[in-house]
Computed example of a mutant assay.
Amino acid sequence: MMENYVYPDTHEMFDLHDTLEELISKESYDIGLGLGSRVDSDPDLEYLLEVLFTPVEARCSYLDIWGSKKYPDIITDIKDGKFMDISMEEFEEKREKWVKEIRETDHPMLRIVKAIKYGREVNDWEIKLHLQNLVSRQKNVLIYMQVCQSMITHGFSLTQISQAVPWVDKSDIYGLSLMLDLSMELTQEERAEVEQEYRRTGKPKVLKEVFGEE
């Protein structure tokens, strides 16, 4: 995890001003694949300006292409509950060190600058860990969806699929077939079960096209 403890002095502020003015003067700007695929927890200020002026679709595509190479241990981190190979306990040590540094900084303005910088870094790390954990918790749902999609494609009936993944409601399985535009014939009994589940829960919303308002 890269750390940048250097704060902009007057000269650097002028450099940032020049960079910003240059970006503003351009009708469009693109940071490019090399820089755009960087995954840093504490990027420099000039880099943040370039990110700001780059279209979202372009930056996201760069991250998709090369971002995983800059963060190769994401699967291990998901398994271990870490982000950027740092656990919550390890990051708490960093946070406590930063708070101590702020307390020991005498100059009021420098104290504020440090607090804002470290606060942003802590907030970013915690939110990214949270989002990563959300993805981890949803991975089973994605697996179930793939299983259902494969079985629907291979012509299995709703009852057969439900027996393979009994924790997934039949209404969700049938709803998935509609969302993926996959053909699935229901028996009268299966249709009645799906409608009953939909009337009870109102989900998935796609079944509104079949059964109307719940």
Rank of each mutant, 00 (worst) to 15 (best):
E197I: 03
R95H: 00
K26H: 10
S25P: 13
L33D: 00
S150L: 08
I143W: 09
K26M: 14
K114Q: 07
I24E: 12
G32N: 08
V122I: 11
V210H: 05
Q149C: 02
G81I: 01
R103A: 06
Q146S: 14
I152Q: 01
R191H: 12
Q138N: 15
W98A: 00
Q160G: 06
L45N: 11
I143T: 07
E3P: 08
S61H: 14
L182K: 13
L134K: 05
D181I: 08
R120S: 09
E101R: 09
I86N: 09
K203A: 08
V135A: 15
L49E: 09
Q160L: 06
E50S: 12
F14V: 14
L180A: 05
H154F: 14
E104M: 07
E190D: 11
T187I: 06
W98M: 02
E50L: 10
D18H: 10
I65L: 13
L20W: 15
R59Y: 14
T19W: 05
L178D: 03
I102L: 02
I102Y: 01
L63Y: 10
M179P: 01
S37M: 07
T19S: 10
D77G: 05
D124F: 04
Q138P: 01
V39T: 14
S177D: 00
G175I: 00
G36H: 02
S171N: 11
E50V: 11
V194Y: 01
E92I: 03
G212Y: 09
Y7L: 13
A115M: 07
K205V: 05
A164I: 06
S61F: 06
I78D: 02
A164D: 14
E185A: 13
E93A: 12
Y71P: 03
G175K: 00
C148P: 02
L48I: 12
L186Y: 01
